[in-house]
Design a protein around this nucleic acid. Structure first.
Length: 489
DNA sequence: ATGTTC
């Protein structure tokens, strides 16, 4: 199940930046595959097993319309990263932990400020140093917020508002998070004691891998009207936080992959890859996972909220002003590893409630959608796309094309194009932190390996990825953000 | 992504 070898199957040009894998490719496909990419990106995409995974997902019971992949597609556990799949519970549709990802509700949130880059330029090093000192980063790190089991149960039921009520944020933070920072139907009773134990002291910690907290400057505004609504302007300082549900979510995923092992035999279907382990939405196993996944998702929103609180505290301490007077409001918070029930057109004008798996993919609801905050009704949902370390990030706005093409979904990042081991090999004898420093980015990390794995050369060009979703009409460019400081695991 | 193999 490795990443070795490329994809040798068909890819038919199917419109602007779309590539179809027809059902004729493999007889077990229930729907076609569809990948969003331009001519250059599709060549890169073919180099790993991502497209074959799109085909594998197309065999899942109850899948609707097409197995989709965004331009940042690359190989992942079972499902590709950048994958989107909607299943119909009425037709035996399944829920799959591999379609959500190990890091349940991994996501990003963007904070704006009223600080201008020209005013804080000289303070960036102390700012980044203090962020790195105060915010726990790296694998297995514990934080200053420790919750006992009864508190964690309430935290997982209530989501972001639980920690806001404790004084670590505002009601406005809750309003500007996807789903209000809380999925309904969370069932902490379906989260193992082991997962809960792992989560006890990790809420408010960054983690490792591609997780980061970045200080940025708005580099370019491409849609002035939308940027104004989002409170963004050129030269402004922003903060981007990328993290998920830490060890708790990992354990939930691991626990249910084991539970689902026997589901194909029990419910009478077969899978081309055991990593696609899944169970019908309407089965006890499926419902148990959904309850646990939602609980872990709510934990992740609390995690990003506590990280927000700590970032605000650091800015206040270093700049000597309360964070409120620094205008550090939440622009928006998006989940990019999650499964949600939403109503969509599944073809021929038929609307159904489907289970949308987004694994390394971001919801991108268009203007007028009832599930986005009143403030963004006119411009569409902010879609926040973190670039790789040392490269730009993007703010997009959801567009009507997302509802037509991709179950209301856009890309989630640059997308890895080199394995972690290959990236480490490439970094031998180099100091990535010094290379970043030379281009004006202060990077603090616990070790060189993490920096090596996340070096810019290991990722696709985020600008090209964003071009694709913009061209297809899934989401449009609003602003480009460039990093000036980053802390990592 | 992950107390990187309970």
């Amino acid at each position: 199940m490795g990443q070795g070898g490329g994809y040798g199957g068909p890819l038919e040009a199917a419109g602007v930046c779309q590539w179809r894998i027809p059902r004729s490719y493999r007889e077990d496909m229930r729907v076609e595959g569809l990948i969003f990419a331009d001519d250059a990106l599709i060549e890169q995409i073919k180099k790993d097993q991502g497209p074959e995974q799109v085909v594998n997902v197309a065999t899942l019971p109850g899948i609707q319309k097409a197995s989709l992949a965004m331009p940042d597609i690359h190989w992942g556990y079972g499902f590709c990263i950048g994958g989107v799949a909607a299943t119909d519970p009425e037709q035996g549709g399944v829920i799959s932990p591999g379609g959500v990802g190990y890091d349940i509700n991994c996501g990003v949130r963007l904070l704006r400020s009223n600080l201008e880059w020209t005013d804080v330029k000289e303070r960036v090093r102390p700012l980044v140093d203090r962020l790195f000192h105060d915010i726990p980063t790296g694998m297995g790190q514990r934080g200053r917020f420790v919750f006992d089991k009864p508190e964690l149960v309430r935290l997982m039921e209530q989501g972001a508002s639980f920690v806001v009520k404790k004084g670590f944020g505002t009601e406005r933070d809750v309003e500007f998070a996807e789903a209000g920072g809380r999925l309904d139907g969370a069932d902490p009773g379906r989260v193992s004691d082991r997962a809960i134990a792992r989560g006890a002291d990790q809420c408010g910690t960054l983690g490792s891998g591609n997780h980061f907290l970045e200080v940025q400057v708005v580099d370019r505004v491409l849609d002035p009207a939308a940027a104004e609504v989002m409170g963004l302007h050129e030269g402004q300082v922003t903060v981007l936080i990328h993290s998920g549900s830490r060890g708790l979510g990992y354990q939930v995923c691991d626990d249910y992959l084991k539970v689902f092992k026997n589901a194909p035999k029990k419910y009478g279907f077969s899978l081309p890859d055991w990593q696609l382990a899944c169970a019908p939405v309407r089965s006890p196993e499926g419902q148990d996972y959904l309850g646990a996944m939602r609980a872990a998702a709510n934990y992740a929103w609390c995690n990003r909220q506590l990280l927000t609180h700590q970032a605000r505290e650091v800015f206040a301490a270093v700049l000597g002003k309360p964070w409120e007077s620094l205008g550090m409001d939440l622009v928006y918070d998006v989940a990019h590893n999650i499964a949600k029930f939403e109503e969509h057109d599944v073809g021929g004008g038929v609307r159904k409630e489907v289970c949308v798996h987004r694994k390394g993919a971001t919801r991108a609801f268009p203007p007028g959608h009832p599930e986005i905050p009143a403030a963004y009704q006119e411009v569409g949902q902010p879609v926040i796309i973190p670039g790789s370390m040392g490269t730009a990030s993007w703010v997009l706005a959801g567009q009507p094309g997302s509802m037509i093409h991709s179950f209301g979904t856009s890309c989630h990042g640059a997308g890895r194009m080199m394995s972690r081991t290959a990236a480490v090999r490439l970094a031998e004898g180099r100091r990535i932190d010094r290379e970043l420093d030379a281009i004006g980015i202060i990077a603090r990390a616990r070790g060189h390996k993490g920096l090596a794995e996340e070096q810019p050369a290991a990722y696709k060009d985020v600008d090209l990825v964003v071009d694709v979703v913009d061209k297809v009409g899934i989401s449009k460019k609003v602003a480009r953000l460039r990093p000036v400081g980053v802390i990592k695991g």
